[in-house]
């Protein structure tokens, strides 16, 4: 994985497989602490204790098509290589929360990549799921909620809306990114 956007698709895909009805993605730049928090919360099936314990083991997977599962181990690797950490909490029948903390004052920090494009493909392919995407930089925030957009009559499944919604998210993110500290390696 070369960008955080890729990790986002990957982790959200896990939530979709866990039959989530609502997925909340949070990216929070804690400017003063030089940290980036990446969190994916779902209300899916959750995991039992045994699965949770083996989650970061690359040779553990629930799939039958292959014998390894690298999504979580990759995320653990990329956050730990910046000096950050990964935390996963889960309750069976309630849902799972994946939290990765990245240090942003090191060049090992992953580029964000195409966050908006990644998010919108997930939204487009899963019309039954409510997605909330929160991006925070210090005290400023941008919130994207698929339910709120649908209420406004915006058709997120329409291919011609892909580029306009993408630039809507991008422009709002760029406004937020102006609040970023100059020593941050995030890009």
């Amino acid at each position: 994985m070369v960008t955080l956007g890729m990790h986002m698709i990957d982790i959200v895909q896990n939530a979709i497989l866990a039959q989530a009805g609502q997925i909340t993605i949070t990216l929070e730049e804690r400017v003063a602490d030089a940290l980036l928090l990446f969190r994916v919360e779902d209300d899916g099936s959750g995991m039992d204790h045994r699965s949770l314990e083996r989650l970061t083991d690359p040779f553990f997977t629930t799939r039958t098509t292959r014998r390894m599962g690298l999504g979580i181990p990759f995320l653990k690797m990329t956050c730990e290589q910046t000096g950050g950490s990964l935390r996963v909490t889960s309750a069976e029948g309630k849902g799972t929360t994946v939290e990765a903390l990245f240090r942003t004052d090191t060049p090992d920090c992953l580029p964000l990549g195409d966050l908006e494009g990644s998010l919108l493909l997930l939204v487009m392919a899963n019309p039954a799921i409510r997605f909330r995407f929160n991006y925070l930089v210090g005290k400023e925030a941008f919130l994207f909620d698929t339910d709120a957009l649908r209420e406004q009559g915006i058709d997120l499944q329409h291919p011609q809306m892909l580029i306009p919604v993408k630039s809507y998210i991008r422009e709002n993110l760029e406004l937020l990114w102006r609040q970023r500290a100059p020593e941050s390696y995030l890009c």
Partner: peptide, 25 residues
Amino acid sequence: MEHTIGIKTLADLKRIQEEVRTRIS
């Protein structure tokens, strides 16, 4: 690529949605 700049609010998106609807029909 059309509509790549100047889309900042939900109202902007709504306006574009109207255009898209007429085209699709």
